[in-house]
Structures are given as C-alpha cells and as structure tokens.
Design a protein around this nucleic acid. Structure first.
Length: 778
DNA sequence: CAGTGAGCGAGCTTCCGCTTGACTT
C-alpha cells in the first residue's frame, strides 16, 4: 500500500502526476468540489453568523467514500487542489469530510503540471490557508443569498421558475442594453470617394479621408475631378511592426474558436476537454497567459528547428484581466513538436489553433514597410490618400494571425495593399473615381464568445462558468441565439469614367444576423425589474467591488461575516420591500386604438408569453371579452408596430370544408399550419398562410395521410394508441406518449401487444437523462 | 408541438464555481 495519498481536482491531472511520483504515491482526484451548501432554506443560518450547512451531493458520495478509505490507509495525505480561492476551499472540504488530522495532512500547490514543479511543491508543503477559505465561503454564501432571495421575488412578480444571480443577471443586462442601443440607432449615410489610378499591374486605389453627407457635394467633387490634374504631393515610408497575441486562456480560446472555426462556446469546451483528456493540451479552464519554463524551452526548440533562429523570440505575457487567479498555465500543446494530431475533424482543428497560437506567441514580430502617398487635386484643396504595405519579415505571421470581431467589416479600399513604385511630384492618370453611399453601422450584437469577452473584462464569471452561464440565460428563456434576415436597402453610386459621370442605384442586404444573442421579452422585463428594484446587484461593477472585499478577506484584513452582514442586511430589506410594494411586471405597452372599433390595443407578457390584447379586460358592467393574439418569433413587445399587431388577428382563418369538418389556417410555434379535425398539417415554405386555398389545404392533408400510412408497420386492436412505426432512426414503438426503442434482434413485425407493453413498462421505469433535462426546462 | 390570457392553491422552481460523464437529436 502506498504511503502517500495525493489528491488533485482533475482525474487527467492525477494520471499525469502519478507518472512523475513513482510507487510511494497514490494520486487520486476529487472531481472538483466534494461538498456544497444544502439545497434547502436552512443552508445558511443568517442569525448565527451565516453558519453553513454542507452536504455531499449524491454524485460525489462514491468518490468521497473511496477517498476516505485511501486516506485511512495512507501515512500522509497531500491536498493538491488548485492554488486559488476555490481550490483552497476544496482542500478544506476534503480535510473536514475525510476526517483528516493536521499531523498527517499537507497542503501543496503548483501552477503547472511538470515534474520539477510537482517535486518542488512536495518539498514545500504548507497548511490550509483559512483566510483564503473564508474568502471562498464569502463568495459562496453571497451567491446563494443573492440567487435564492432574488429568484423567488421574480416568481412572485414576473413568472414562476425564473432565476436571477450575480453573474447571469448582468449577462442578460448586457444583451438587453445592447439590443436597445441597436434599436435606437439612427444610421447616417455619407458618400465615400475612391479613386483608381494607373493601369493593369500598376493600378492602385486612393481614398478621400473626408466623406460627403450630401449627394450634391459628392457630385460636385467628381465634377471638379473631370478636368483636374493629380500629382503626388508627398510620399512617406515608415517601418511598422506587429507582435503576436498571448497564448490562449479559456476566454480567448472561446473567442478565436468562434471567429475562426464557428464553434459555440460549449462546443469549444467539449472539444478542448477531449484534447486535455488525451494528454494533448494543458488544462483548458484557465485565466492565465503564463507558460512554464519547460514550455518556453520546448517552444523555442521547436521554432528554431522548424523555422530557424531568427523566428524565435522569447516572450512572457502578463495577464490583464481583473480577478485572474492564475492557478494554471495558459492553454498550450503538451508537446510542441507535435504539429498535428489524430482525432476527429473538430479536435484536429482546435488543436491546430492552440498549437499555432502558442507557438506564435514565442516568435518574432512581423515587420512591414508602410507607404502613404498623398495625392493633390488641382481643382480642389482636399488630398486623396493611398496606403500601401509590404511585409519585410513575416515573423510569427508564418504560423498564425489572430482574428478580430470586426472581420465582417468590408475590407477598406486602399488599405494593406501593395503600391507600385511612386515618386514625389509624379503625375497620375485617373482611371475611375466613384462616390459610394455608405451607412454608419449600429453597435454589434453579442455573440456567445464576445459576451464571454465582455464578462471577462468586467471580471464577472470564471473560466469554468462562461459556457454554463451562456446556457443558463438561454435555458431560462431570457436570451435566444438566432439568425435574423436582413432588409434590402438601396444605396447610390456615382461613377466618373472617361470624363462622364453616371449615377445608379444599387441594392444591398443589411442587418442580417447569424448566431447573435437577442433578448426575449421575458428577458427584457426581468432585466428592467431588477434594474428598478436591485440596481446594486445588476450594476456592472458589483462583482468587481465584492471581489475587492474577497481579496481583503483572503489577505486576512477583513472578517468575512462582517462583509456579508454589511451586504445582506440592506439587501434583504430591499427584497422585503419589493415583495410588499412592487407591482407585477408584465412589460405592458399601449400601442394605440383600433382604427375601426376604437378599442385599446396593448402588448404585454402573459402566462404563455408575449401577446396583443384588443379591448379592455371584461368586467361585470362590460362583459365582452377582449381579443388576444400571441406575438410571433422575431417580434417583441418593445418594437412591434400597431400595424403588425393588427396583422396577427387575421389568423386563424377558415379555409374551407373537408370531410364535413372545418379547415383553419394559423401560425404556431413551428410555423404556419392547417388544422383539420384536431390534427395539424404544416404548410410548406413559400405559401403565405393568408392566401391558402381550400384545394391546397385538402391536398396537404391527403399528402400527410399518405406519408403517415407508409410510416405504420403494425397497429394493435387492443389499444389504438399503441403502434409500431418507422421513424428517422428505424422502427420504434409508439406507446401512447412514450416512444420505445426496439431491442436488437427483434423483428418489429412479430412483436405482440404484450411484448410492447412490457418494453414500454421497462422504458418508463428508467427515464432518460435527456428527457429529464427537457422536463426541467419546461 | 400548434388553442390559451380570470383566480384559487397545492408543490415546485432558484445561485456560482469546481470537476466529469452519460446522454441524445
């Protein structure tokens, strides 16, 4: 039996370290936190110094009992969780839960998983740092108090099952605020002048720095240029350089994988987890840009041997993000000499990105020569400007170039292109000049990754929570990730060529969005409610200010219960008074009155989502009920017009009769459909539901019936709700509302009713995890 | 899957941060 038990947080880490330490050490993992506050109300005893009640969650019971057994058998237990607030608390929870004693427990820390770092750590053990543990408890208690007092206020005042928290509510606020900026934005048009000089290979573009707001001014400019001479007034050449970006943290990896590979934040983490478990990369949840000495040397060797000495430049990066705890290295390949890996496509691509970024971070800067030519116009006082750029040395660009969020911006004319050899005073021949109407753009909506970037800047959330936070705000229905179609917009182009000016109008698509985060109506209502009654909590600086206090607790300068008391008492008072005084929040907005009946038209959130109401609520005096219609996806309470609202009442509509039953057309959650005899038939795309004819509807119904008949393998006389059907993934049993898999080796046609019943009974007993999750969402 | 929108009341929901798996669709 090993004399020493060493406990880390991650099993993959445990495996690696075990290899470094030899037979005297057993290395095990705690799989993160092993205890948490109980779920119930009494988790925190507010009257008694916020005393906490902890429990080992069901899925950690086995781990804890295994560790307990090993700890009993070992001479020495080494607590090697991460060196940050959470890690220190994990060590403390282990100490308490495993029943360890000071005499046989040592606390060690390391920031990188390399043999020298581990050995050094073992030679320098310390004790559990209770100040750091207290800081973690303050963090945990504050988050629980905020989350579990605020959420119930929302259940009462907005809708059941909603949630609020220090992190998620700010994330939602960012998205709501941004959407309002976009909606408020007034686009301004101006004419941009671009000139094309020279011929063929010698051709280059120059741009006028000023823009013209009026078409007349742009036209006048072109007109003046008809007879003008163009001379190079000045020519300036200067060196420029560019440095590589720091190696990846969780946040920057998520951003780059989103921009370069189109991965969602959670996909990036899933793929990175696989790479980590295969031993190919270092830990993927980190806020540090630091590389170990081992890594720096390995990168240097690789760069020198692959590209030569002059491509190598050692760099040590300093983290800029507030609140970084730097318990790990930056994300990097474990072995720099492994340029590519085996694995599926997404793993290969992500590894490639990580490898390139890490290698590039240790390479020389790229060097350029930038040339600016200013071109005088004999008939005008303005100057045209042409910029050219020539790369003199590629440096790190040989392997990697970081993308930016503004990459969808059209390439600026005359930027970063090559210029032909030019001399000062040279006269240029104008080929063509254009004045193109361009529009200013509203601020960009957040993508998942750009939201992570913003949260990190604000110091809100941690590497391990970015992806889950983004899922939470979507699962709660506060935010949707969507595509939105753009609108056509006309823009004017004036062209000067061969002494003539031509005018034309062109069409461009604008405002199209893909994979962007939009607030829902419920998201906006919840946000406004929180901003109104709990401004301090959803303040962008709230986390930063409590983090500062956690730091003071960690340094032993502050008592954690004092800090929480000072926060909690006024906060709780706000909660109480909000419950007492606040009205229910529905986001109600009056759109105006009905053009015919004169009744009030309003929109608000109801039990089933946002809807329009025409007329007042029924009363004893006025028993007539109002009319209702749900908003459609893409519409929102804040922006819907009275015209669009009235349009919603044109459906559902009768289309005709079939088999003596009415057919109606309407639009549901999943698009337009025909309803007949309580069955639903989706309308194909391209048919306007308002234009559907009786014939088309009948045809649709018959088509669907035919398809369904082909699907049916077997029906049972015993129970008409039980069928064997042919589905997308092969045959299955439909048992009422339950879909049951057919075990391998069974011939679907030969299944009896009794067998189906038995299979359904088994399936019902073991509800699927995914099904549970889905039920939870609802 | 797709309609609904008053009000009552049962019982439930909910936080953040540290880890993986076991699941689909």
């Amino acid at each position: 039996m090993a004399k020493n038990l060493l406990i880390v947080e991650s099993p993959a880490k445990a495996k690696t370290i075990e290899g470094y330490l030899g037979k005297d050490f057993t290395v095990k993992s705690s799989y993160g936190h092993i205890r948490d506050l109980v779920k119930s109300e009494d988790a925190i005893d507010i009257a008694h110094n916020f005393e906490q009640k902890y429990e080992v969650p069901a899925d950690k019971k086995q781990i804890v009992s295994d560790l307990k057994k090993l700890a009993k058998e070992a001479d020495m237990v080494w607590l090697a969780s991460d060196e940050d607030r959470e890690g220190e608390a994990i060590s403390w929870h282990l100490y308490e839960t495993l029943g360890l004693k000071e005499s046989n427990t040592k606390r060690i820390v390391f920031h990188e998983i390399t043999k020298p770092a581990i050995l050094r750590a073992i030679e320098n053990p310390r004790k559990i740092d209770y100040n750091l543990v207290n800081a973690q408890q303050a963090r945990r208690v504050l988050d629980r108090l905020v989350g579990f007092e605020l959420s119930p206020v929302l259940w009462k005042k907005v809708k059941p099952s909603l949630s609020a928290g220090r992190v998620q509510s700010v994330a939602v606020r960012l998205i709501v605020d941004r959407e309002r900026e976009v909606n408020k934005f007034k686009s301004e048009a101006a004419f941009k002048i671009v000139a094309l000089f020279g011929k063929a290979k010698e051709a280059f573009k120059a741009e006028l720095p000023e823009r013209f707001a009026q078409q007349d001014d742009a036209e006048k400019f072109l007109l003046d240029c008809v007879t003008a001479d163009f001379d190079i007034n000045s020519l300036e050449t200067r060196p420029a350089k560019r440095s590589p970006a720091a190696p990846f943290t969780t946040s920057t990896l998520q951003q780059e994988a989103s921009r370069k590979l189109g991965y969602s934040v959670s996909r990036t983490m899933q793929v990175a987890q696989k790479l980590y478990e295969s031993g190919l990369i270092t830990y993927m949840r980190t806020d540090s840009v630091n590389l170990s000495d081992t890594a720096l040397n390995a990168a240097a060797d690789e760069i020198v041997s692959a590209y030569g000495n002059k491509y190598h430049q050692q760099r040590k990066y300093k983290t800029k993000s507030a609140g970084a705890q730097e318990a790990h290295e930056a994300i990097r390949p474990t072995y720099f000499n492994q340029h590519s890996i085996d694995g599926d496509g997404s793993e290969k691509r992500l590894y490639d990105l990580i490898w390139k970024r890490a290698i590039a971070s240790q390479m020389s800067e790229a060097q350029f020569e930038k040339t600016t030519a200013k071109i005088g116009i004999s008939t005008r006082k303005e100057e045209l400007v042409a910029n050219g750029e020539v790369m003199k040395f590629d440096g790190f660009l040989k392997v990697y170039l970081e993308s930016s969020d503004e990459d969808d911006e059209p390439q600026q004319d005359g930027e970063n292109s090559m210029l032909p050899p030019l001399t000062k005073g040279q006269r240029l021949a104008l080929q063509e000049m254009s004045a193109t109407e361009r529009f200013s753009r509203p601020p960009a909506r957040y993508t998942e990754a750009s939201l992570v970037k913003k949260l990190e800047e604000l110091g809100i959330g941690r590497p391990s929570t970015y992806a889950p936070t983004i899922s939470t705000i979507q699962n709660r229905g506060y935010v949707v990730k969507e595509e939105r179609e753009g609108k056509q917009r006309a823009f004017r182009v004036l062209t000067l060529k061969s002494g003539n000016i031509t005018k034309e109008e062109k069409i461009e698509n604008t405002g199209a969005e893909k994979g962007k985060l939009f607030p829902t109506d419920i998201g906006a209502v919840v946000n406004d409610f929180l901003v109104l009654y709990f401004k301090g909590i959803v303040d962008f600086n709230f986390t930063a200010s409590v983090e500062k206090q956690f730091d003071e607790i960690a340094q032993g300068l502050k008592e954690w219960t004092d800090m929480i008391r000072k926060f909690y008492d006024p906060f709780h008072k706000d909660v109480e008074s909000t419950i007492q005084t606040a009205d229910k929040a529905t986001g109600e907005r009056e759109l105006g009155v009905h053009p015919v009946s004169g009744k009030k038209i309003s929109v608000r959130i109801g039990r089933y989502g946002p809807f329009v109401q025409v007329g007042e609520n029924a009363t004893d005096a006025e028993p007539e009920k109002p009319l209702y219609a749900s908003l459609r996806s893409g519409q929102s309470i804040e922006t819907i017009s009275i015209e669009d609202a009235l349009e919603l009442f044109k459906l559902p509509k009768k289309v005709g009769l079939f088999e003596e039953k009415d057919m109606t057309v309407a639009i549901g959650k999943f698009g337009p459909y025909i309803r007949h005899n309580s069955a639903f038939y989706s309308l194909p795309k391209g048919i306007d539901p308002l234009d559907v004819t009786e014939e088309q509807a009948i045809e649709l119904i018959l088509e669907k019936r035919k398809k369904d008949a082909e699907k049916l393998i077997k029906a049972f006389d015993e129970d008409p709700t039980v069928k064997i059907l042919n589905g997308r993934w092969g045959p299955y049993i439909e048992f009422g509302k339950l879909n049951v898999k057919i075990p391998k080796g069974k011939e679907p046609l030969e299944l009896t009713f009794e067998e189906c019943k038995a299979l359904a009974a088994i399936a019902e007993k073991e509800p699927k995890k995914g099904a549970k999750k889905f039920a939870k969402k609802k």
